[in-house]
Design a binder for these strands. Structure first.
Length: 378
DNA sequence: CGGATTTGACCGGCGC
DNA sequence: GCGCCGGTCAAATCCG
């Protein structure tokens, strides 16, 4: 599925913040919150403090956020620092504001990864204490975003100038706002939440629409790809295509094919850089990712209950996902063979063979550099 | 033949 | 009120 896009060169981690954003994006697709992920980590951790934390305690009471948010800067609070240790590899980390401190006024436990994806890139960068050059960050649509979600902003980098790189962007507003000068910003999707209703039944008051509008989560990301419709593990049905003003590339509209799932996405190409695909997701899936389910079933990892299925996957994922410092430090090395696009033919073949031996992680296989994946021992 | 895609028509919001 | 535009519908068409 995503292997197609890998061959075209999909994601490219430029720095730690990019990696984090991609991880966040993945977890957002799983609709996992920090607390859920931390619980998954802690339940498998060998440390006494974390292994003793039970699921019941998690669900029954709301404790200090520092106990559940892995980015909290204090291992003495029971955080499995090794898991997210790459986030604090800076010796002066203790002097830096933690994610919690940075996100003043936010309840980290109540935030999903989707919420974090909606944060400002600078905020994330500060919170994670990762470098973020000024040229990496643009916030051209923050004003628009404020209409819908409290503090989202575009998250991307300058890599449109680097041919083989791609960026990941998070925003609650319409990705099309990045395309053209201004015109669309005030007119973005006033009725896109009226999905599935007959036109004759669409007489909904403005206030109702506004309320519904605020409930929907939405984010967009940019991908350098020759393929318009990127596989993300979910099944989509195309229900429309429109020409985009000031762009020679059409915009495609997709709807999740799962029953009662109202998630939609739009796919379009940037008219400024046609090699960039702008994918805008809207809403949250009310079901599991079919690709994940399939992979877990095939690998015999799928538990009988959906809750176990949700946990087993990221639990293993996190153990594999987070690399040692050396790997992280190498992310900025453009020569590092992290993705197919950087591999020569034999390497690509080898990588592809390895991937075929692995469980299908759906979109993760594209988010996570191949070096993060477990090595296959004969 | 059933599901997915295409594509023209239609609707509603918004600016003028 | 009118026209533009984004978003959606649904019949026609395609395809495995």
């Amino acid at each position: 599925m995503w292997r197609k896009t890998e061959q075209k060169g999909l994601f490219f981690c430029r720095n730690k913040a990019d990696i984090l954003l991609q991880i966040f994006f993945f977890f957002s697709l799983l609709e996992l919150s920090f607390s859920e992920v931390y619980h998954i980590i802690s339940s498998s951790s060998s440390s006494p403090s974390s292994s003793s934390s039970s699921s019941s305690s998690m669900s029954n009471e709301k404790k200090n956020p520092s106990q559940y948010v892995p980015f909290y800067n204090n291992e003495q609070r029971g955080i499995p620092g090794s898991v997210f240790s790459f986030l604090s590899d800076n010796p002066s980390m203790n002097d830096q504001p933690t994610l919690i401190e940075t996100l003043q006024g936010s309840d980290p436990l109540s935030m999903s990864f989707t919420d974090y994806l909606s944060m400002d890139y600078n905020t994330l960068s500060r919170a994670f204490n990762v470098p973020c050059s000024s040229s990496d960050v643009i916030s051209p649509i923050q004003d628009y975003c404020s209409r819908e979600i409290s503090a989202p902003a575009a998250v991307t980098n300058e890599n449109t100038s680097t041919p083989d790189s791609s960026s990941i962007s998070s925003s609650s507003n319409d990705a099309a706002t990045q395309q053209g000068p201004g015109k669309s910003k005030e007119k973005q999707q006033p009725k896109e939440y009226e999905d599935g209703k007959k036109k004759s039944n669409n007489k909904v008051s403005k206030t109702t629409k506004k309320e519904k509008r605020q409930r929907e989560s939405r984010f967009a990301f940019l991908t350098k790809s020759e393929i318009d419709h990127l596989e993300d593990g979910y099944r989509w049905r195309k229900y429309g295509q429109k020409a985009v003003k000031n762009s020679s590339y059409p915009r495609s509209y997709y709807r999740c094919t799962s029953q009662k799932c109202t998630v939609k996405k739009r796919v379009e190409r940037s008219f400024q850089d046609p090699s960039i695909v702008i994918t805008t997701y809207e809403g949250k899936h009310n079901h599991q990712c079919p690709a994940t389910l399939q992979a877990n079933t095939a690998a015999g990892l799928l538990a009988s209950t959906s809750s176990m299925a949700r946990q087993s996957f990221p639990q293993e994922l996190l153990a594999r996902l987070l690399p040692p410092h050396d790997n992280i430090n190498n992310q900025c090395d453009p020569t590092a063979p992290m993705f197919y696009q950087h591999l020569n033919a034999p390497q690509k073949q080898q990588q592809q063979q390895q991937l075929h031996l692995l469980p299908d992680y759906g979109q993760l296989q594209d988010f996570v550099p191949s070096t993060f994946l477990p090595k296959q021992h004969p």
